[in-house]
Amino acid sequence: MRALVSQSPRTSASGEGTHTLAVVELPLPVPGPGQVRVAVRAAAVNPVDLATANGVLAAGGLHPARDSVGLGWDVAGRVDALGAGVAAYSVGDEVIGLADLLDAVSGTHAEYVVLDTHQIAPAPPGVDPVAAATIPLNALTAEQALDNLALTPGQSVLVTGAAGGVGGFAVELAVRRGLRVAAVAAAADEALVRGFGAEWFVPRDVERLGAAVRALVPGGVDGALDAAVLGGAEVLGAVRNQGAYTTLGPASAIPLRGIRTSHTWIAADGERLAQLSQLAAAATGGLTLRVADTFALSDAEAAYGRLARGAVRGRLVLVP
């Protein structure tokens, strides 16, 4: 089968080296006990894929330095083989899934991928696989980040990067939890994030974020979800004393003024993913699925290059 990998034949122990993208031929993976093989129909490209491809994650110690590492987290596809003991799925089932192991020979940017059953969920009914492939990583990250904040209905939450993949879902999911949302995004994206349900809006280029938020929410918001990874020093000023803050990156956040700080590290969760899939179903429309463009797997380098240039609204999706 064909699979996209990041190759670094001169990788050092620190993970530094010359990294190149290549579509290579690998043996067709065989599902083991409790696993399924998915014939990939679509796979989104995310910033974490770019960081893996560039060797940033290996350099940061998040996976061992390798001469070759598989790429891709998100997938939408069809089950085409079952491992021993799998009863919840059948060959032919349409699914979405999340490959959350960083040190992989092959990821979802491939023609086939093997996943544990806890990494997949039924695909959203009535939704095209290209759009469905944008759900797993970003929606699960947003949901788990909101869990970490542990806010209650009626409380307020600041979402940075509110026009992004995680941030957009975070705004919608926060509103569904009964939270009042202050969104940070580019000025041109104000209508977009208000459409997601944001009550307040702050342009991302404001000089003092904390002061701007407090002008809208006296005393500060109850929690902040730093999807843009602006860093605690900038965002904590917007949070009330003894509030909550979570970030998606490894940057430290000092718990000033008794603020409870955390890092959200995504973990596959099939049960939660199934709930998000139902929410995104065509008949429900509870999540806004955004596709910026599609690329053939053979043209993956162009997709990665476009993501690296930035200013992408919605996800870029590879189609084998």
Rank of each mutant, 00 (worst) to 15 (best):
residue 88 A to H: 05
residue 88 A to M: 02
residue 88 A to F: 01
residue 89 Y to S: 07
residue 89 Y to A: 09
residue 90 S to T: 11
residue 91 V to G: 02
residue 92 G to F: 08
residue 92 G to H: 11
residue 93 D to A: 14
residue 96 I to V: 15
residue 99 A to P: 03
residue 100 D to M: 08
residue 100 D to K: 07
residue 103 D to E: 11
residue 103 D to L: 07
residue 106 S to F: 01
residue 107 G to C: 06
residue 108 T to C: 14
residue 108 T to I: 07
residue 109 H to R: 05
residue 109 H to W: 04
residue 110 A to R: 00
residue 110 A to Y: 00
residue 110 A to G: 07
residue 111 E to R: 14
residue 112 Y to C: 02
residue 112 Y to G: 00
residue 114 V to R: 03
residue 116 D to R: 15
residue 117 T to I: 15
residue 118 H to T: 14
residue 120 I to A: 04
residue 122 P to G: 01
residue 122 P to I: 05
residue 123 A to K: 13
residue 123 A to W: 12
residue 125 P to I: 13
residue 125 P to Q: 13
residue 126 G to R: 15
residue 126 G to I: 15
residue 127 V to C: 09
residue 130 V to W: 11
residue 131 A to R: 15
residue 131 A to S: 14
residue 134 T to R: 04
residue 135 I to G: 04
residue 136 P to T: 12
residue 137 L to A: 10
residue 137 L to Y: 11
residue 137 L to C: 05
residue 138 N to W: 06
residue 138 N to Q: 14
residue 138 N to R: 12
residue 138 N to F: 11
residue 139 A to F: 10
residue 141 T to W: 08
residue 142 A to M: 05
residue 142 A to G: 02
residue 142 A to Y: 12
residue 144 Q to S: 02
residue 144 Q to C: 05
residue 145 A to W: 05
residue 147 D to C: 06
residue 147 D to F: 09
residue 150 A to F: 03
residue 151 L to V: 05
residue 152 T to K: 11
residue 153 P to V: 12
residue 153 P to R: 13
residue 154 G to K: 07
residue 155 Q to D: 03
residue 155 Q to A: 09
residue 155 Q to G: 03
residue 156 S to F: 02
residue 157 V to A: 06
residue 157 V to E: 00
residue 158 L to T: 04
residue 158 L to Y: 07
residue 159 V to Y: 04
residue 160 T to L: 13
residue 160 T to W: 04
residue 161 G to Q: 09
residue 161 G to Y: 09
residue 163 A to L: 08
residue 165 G to Y: 09
residue 165 G to K: 03
residue 169 F to V: 01
residue 170 A to G: 05
residue 171 V to G: 01
residue 174 A to M: 04
residue 174 A to F: 02
residue 175 V to N: 02
residue 175 V to Q: 00
residue 176 R to C: 00
residue 178 G to C: 05
residue 180 R to V: 14
residue 181 V to T: 06
residue 181 V to R: 00
residue 182 A to D: 03
residue 184 V to P: 01
residue 184 V to H: 03
residue 186 A to D: 15
residue 186 A to R: 15
residue 187 A to I: 12
residue 189 D to W: 10
residue 189 D to R: 15
residue 190 E to T: 08
residue 193 V to S: 02
residue 198 A to C: 11
residue 198 A to N: 07
residue 201 F to Y: 13
residue 201 F to Q: 03
residue 201 F to W: 14
residue 202 V to D: 04
residue 203 P to R: 03
residue 207 E to V: 14
residue 208 R to P: 00
residue 209 L to K: 04
residue 210 G to W: 13
residue 211 A to P: 01
residue 212 A to F: 08
